[in-house]
Structure formats: structure tokens, C-alpha cells
Design a protein around this nucleic acid. Sequence first.
DNA 1: CTGAAAGCGCTTACAG
DNA 2: CTGAAAGCGCTTACAG
Lengths: 361, 361
Amino acid sequence: MKGSNPTSRDIAEIAGVSQATVSRALRNSPLVREETRQKIQQIARDLNYFVNRNAAGLRTHQSHTIALLLFDETEGRDAVINPFFLSMLGYITRAASSHGYDVLISMQQLSDDWHIEYQASHRADGLILLGYGDYVTYREKLAALARANTRFMIWGPTINDQPGHSIGCDNINGGYQATSHLIENGRRNIAFVGSTSKRAPELAARYAGYCSAILDAGLGLCERRKVSAWNSGGEGYRAVEELLERGEPFDAIFAVTDVLAIDAMRALEENGYSVPDDVAVVGFDDISLAKHVTPALTTVRQDIKLAAEGLVDGIVGLIKGEPVESSLMAPQLIVRASCGARSPASGPAASETGRRQSAHR
Amino acid sequence: MKGSNPTSRDIAEIAGVSQATVSRALRNSPLVREETRQKIQQIARDLNYFVNRNAAGLRTHQSHTIALLLFDETEGRDAVINPFFLSMLGYITRAASSHGYDVLISMQQLSDDWHIEYQASHRADGLILLGYGDYVTYREKLAALARANTRFMIWGPTINDQPGHSIGCDNINGGYQATSHLIENGRRNIAFVGSTSKRAPELAARYAGYCSAILDAGLGLCERRKVSAWNSGGEGYRAVEELLERGEPFDAIFAVTDVLAIDAMRALEENGYSVPDDVAVVGFDDISLAKHVTPALTTVRQDIKLAAEGLVDGIVGLIKGEPVESSLMAPQLIVRASCGARSPASGPAASETGRRQSAHR
DNA sequence: CTGAAAGCGCTTACAG
DNA sequence: CTGAAAGCGCTTACAG
């Protein structure tokens, strides 16, 4: 079917040198005379030769590959990943590639046995874990990874005693910014939609930021304006209906994710409330949907590109045995129409200008 | 840093057998006595042993990995991939995994030298190519792949003499369905927005379907209702403005992609036209944005899951040396609000029910 | 600057 | 059913 590929031995024969010299020349070793190197590399090009990664990997114990584990809480066979993580994937791949690493992807159900063998089987030198997860379940799996001496970086909250290194967003700050912005624009009764469970510490942190902003403004917290909702379709809608049933007045909603916020907006409008006139809405994540929805959703952006680069830098550092620190990134409020800001352009927050995703289609 | 991993030799020593027997037992060879196999596998589990893929791959000349090349025409460093292909990624990964294959991803610029070395370097056993592309540029690159004896499957049109195997959508049929639907709903002056260049045969095919539908209905084609537009942001908007300037009346638009359609809808509304009352709009792709936009976009869905499975089946078949055929999949009209259908539920077309992406967030 | 040699950890004919 | 042996294609001390 296919003529077997040329090997370094073939090149050696043609060049009239030893196979060892070919190997050195191809790796640009300074030990090889310039002239010899040129000649060997030219032959390699002519033969369409590429180093056999299996052989090289076997020798060096490196795969120059990073495994990216994407897990989602979606049940069943649906392969629909949170768009937020999906877009991170692109940046991770680019960043990895600039470090000379390939990226292997793997979709995991939270309930699965994670593929901790990626590293043990020498398919990858390290892992990056992506997904909003249940950190209680997480914990023991992470511990198993750590026990197996696997190198890994997590996108998510930095939790005390959590095994491994992580890069996350300063969710408290993000929740604070979103809520403060609503308050600055005259809203007084701001409802909260989302999970505050300890199992989802990232979301709980956003709630904490929401609470601080309200207290700092001298407003009172009201339990009846807090509706618990998970991140799946329909939950935001349901939450708004519950809020309306309770009868507690509200003039704004801070939703922990854009998915919930968008769903909530629809519920509001179908119940006869105008967004943002009757109820202002702010979300979190800045998924690409956010700016296309009507009214365009004001939200808190996490810098996906920076996050991706941080994760890759981290894992490459771990592979090289360098010290790596967990870190937290600053989120940024993106003001659009749904918050009813008097003048989107004037505030201290960023306007649409400077968006990175301008060319997306 | 990390205690070196156990090898099959370690297991052999503990089990008191030869290393060869360990290898056989771990691969469930029928040559090994049941009892011996059990014992060996138990020891492997205890030691947390995993076969070194580099070694196995070197021996067998297989990587059990598929490389997925995603390329986009976006310029520069932006890692924003067409959402349509991004969602295909998930399905491809699942399908590959069910065949025992890992997926390596790689982002390519159309202008790049493609990574034809994935297979030559034994990092992958075959490639899957994804992306709407310029098939003129494509062609020579595909030919280079073929020359290097690389196994690959392409998502896209089946073109005469095009090297390699492909799976695509019956775009002519899709364009026909979209246009006929508009006609059935009373529209008579249907504009076309999108590229009809031969460089993008998939889109040209959609245009061909549009033309057939109009001619079959006894309506006349009008060049002045056809506006050329590429798939990037803003092009759909510009196209509508051009259409309005021309002064040729139109009561519907068929746009070759959802991205263009959504952009066009915005332009219409900002120019004082109501969708669908004044102008009905139908798109193509059914990206996840489509159903969230207001009004929800009627569009033509390509079955992403089936496509992904077909591509993976194809590449696995090629790897195994089985005969593989290119194929075309039937698209499906998804009726929502933007087409102004009198009764979305009654037509022969699919209603929203039965959507696969219900749980996306 | 170059070569001969060892060895990474497997798989698989070959021999029993 | 099992073992001894060869060899996949590299990288890298070691010796010159």
C-alpha cells in the first residue's frame, strides 16, 4: 500500500556518514560540521524524511504532546461542549504549538474513570483539565492523578489543599464588578440566578462577589431574590418564573453564566417584562452568543487567550521541572445593552472596542 | 521527580514468566493460558502499569491516533474557529474513541504548509480535514498529501478528480429545500447572499439549488437579486445594504451560511424592515446561534454527528486497508420564525422537536 | 567533529 | 501454551 518511510539509516547511507551523525545533524547539534549538516538536511528534505516520533519518544521518554481533557456535566452521548471551553481549545492548541507541543483531546464524562494513563502510557507529557465541575467528585480524581505522578494544570478555582496547579478567574471580583455596575446604574433590587453550592466553587465565588457589592453599597441582601439554578438549558427560564411567583420585586438579575442569563432574558420577555427597562440583566463568561442576542448581553469576560497561554506555559514548565505557581486572572466587565447602562461608552468598564473576537463567524 | 514506570519486564519478573508472555497476556492473546493471563493482568493493575505507546507504536508502526486538521480562512493569530466545525470536533472525538483511536488536533491557516508529516512521523495513522476552504488552493495540497501516501478524509464536496475521499452534505438539495420553502410560503422575489465562486464549491452548490428551485417554480432568476458575500463578519450586513441600494424589490433572502443570514437580519432591521414580515430569511448550517437569535433563524441543518461518524469510519477503514467510498449526506430544513412560514409545525419539514442539541449551554 | 554501540520497551515470528 | 531472540528507529554517552 505505501512504500515504507525512509529512516535515518537510509539518509546515512546516501550521505556516506554514520546514522548517529544523521541524528545529530537533524537535531541541529553543534557537534556536526556545518557542511555535513547542510548536506544531511538537504537529503532529508529530498527524501521527505520525518523523524519517527515513536522511536524518538521511546528513546527520550517524551512525547511532546499535551492531553487536553474536556469534561462536561452533560449526560449521555451528547457531544455538546460548553462553548466557553470549546473556544479555549483553539487558544490552547496555538499556545501548545508555539512551544512545540501537539494536543491530544479527550472528552470525559465526569462520571468516567479519567484517562489518567495518558502520561503513564507515554502518549502525553502532561494534562490540562477543562470543565466546570463538581469539585467534590473532582478532588479524589485529582488526588489519583497526583498519586500517579501525573503533571497537570486545571482551569478553575484555586482551592486549599487541592492537588495540582490551577489557573482561574477571579470570580469574586467578577461578580462584584457585575453587581456594582447594576447598582451604579440605579438598580436596587438585584436578583441572583445560579448555583451557590460548594460543589461548584467558581460559581459560589461569583455569588460571594455579588453579596459584597450589595453590602458595600449599603443595600440589603435578600434571600428571596436568590434562585438556585444549574447551568443547563431551561434552568434560567425556570428560575425567572420562580422569582416572579415569589412576588419579591426585582429590577435586575445577575446570572452566574451567560447561558443562564440568556435563558432568563427570554423568560422575562415572554412574561411581559422588558430588558433592560423593567429588568436589567448581566451574565458571566462572554460566550460568543452574548453579543448576538437581543438585547446584547452585558457580561463579565474571562480572558480566554491569556488563560490558555497560562495553562500551556504551566504544563510545559512542569514538564521541564520548573516551579509553577497557580494564579488568578482579572475578569473584565463588557458593557452592552442588557444592563441598561445610561452610557455604555462612558463608564470605567470596557466598551465593545478592543474585543478580540471581531472576526468570528 | 517521578519513579520510572513499571515495564512489562517488571511484571514478568513478578509473575515468574517471560516478558513475551506478559505482552501476550496483556493483549489478551488466546495463546496464553487463562490462569496465567489473569495473574499477569492482576499484577499489571496492581502496579498501575500501562503499555508504553511509543514502544508499541515503534514495533507495530501504528499510533492509534487520528490527526484532525482544522483550518479556517481567518487571518492572523485569532484562534476563533467556525462554530460549525468546532461542534463537529466533539462528535469526531467520541467516534474515534469508540474505535480505540485518540485524536490529535491541529489548527492550520490555509496559507500554512499543512502538517503532512503527521503520518510520516508516525504521530497519526491518518488525517481528517475540516474547514470551508478555497478548493483551488486546496487541490495542490491534497495532491501533496496523496503523493506522500497519507490517508485522509475530507469534510466537503466531492469534486471530480479531487484526491482522497470525502464526506459532504448535499448542498444542492439543501439550497433547493431552503428556497422552495420560501416559495411555498408565498415569497416571489428571493434574493441570494453569498459566494458563488468556484473556489468554494460547497457554497456554489447551494446557489445551484437556489436557482433550480426558482426555475422549477416557474419564477425567473434575477442577477440583480444576487449579492456576493464571503463568510466573515459584516459581509452579510454589507450585502443587504447593497441589495437595498440596487432598488430591486425582494421579499426574502436565502443566505449561504447562518453567519451571513444573521448578519443580514440585523441589517434589515436596522434599515427598518421587519423579519419575516417584510423580508423572510433562511440560512444554512444550523449553528447553535441560529435558534437563539431573534427571530429564530430558519436554516438547513447538516447532520454533524453522522458526518463525524462517517469521517471516522472512513479514516479507520483506510487505515485497515478497506475500501472506502466518498458520500453525500442529506440536509434537513429546520423551520423556525425567520422564514415567516404560516405554520412551522405543519410542513413536511422538521420542527424543532427532535433537535439533538437540547442540552447545550 | 565522527563512529560504533548500547538500549529505550515493546511485538511477533520461530522453536519447542 | 511458553520462552529466547530479533528488531522497530531513534538518541546519546563513550571513545577516538
